[in-house]
Amino acid sequence: GGATAAACFHNSLSEETQGYDVEFDPPLENKYECPICLMALREAVQTPCGHRFCRACITKSLRDAGQKCPVDNEILLESQLFPDNFAKREILSLTVKCPNRGCLLKMELRKLEEHQECCEFSTVECCQCLGR
């Protein structure tokens, strides 16, 4: 019913804002991995205790699991989070593999989205059978 549809919608939204689930080449350094979603930091923020998280992951954790750092349990308020723009820039310039099967292209993470829009190996909904 309507409730499950809403839940699904909510899930897909929060999934989108987790880290970047993509293969890095060379592999991602540990320090740029979010300790919550275990993916590459998206909109990296830093805590005063010296840990990095995706903004969405830590915001959700502070709301659901209490106002503490999930790594070391230090008291942590949302207002103490700082955008780690240095880490963000470095992560966006890391090389990733296009996740589409068959595509062998590698590019900077910041160019991935743009590439996927024109990647020959992207799967698209057929406009002929759509909605049938």
Binding site: N30, K31, P35, H51, R52, V71, D72
Partner: peptide, 8 residues
């Protein structure tokens, strides 16, 4: 959860 370097 301790994936990042947490060395004291």
């Amino acid at each position: 959860l301790i994936r990042q370097n947490s060395t004291a």
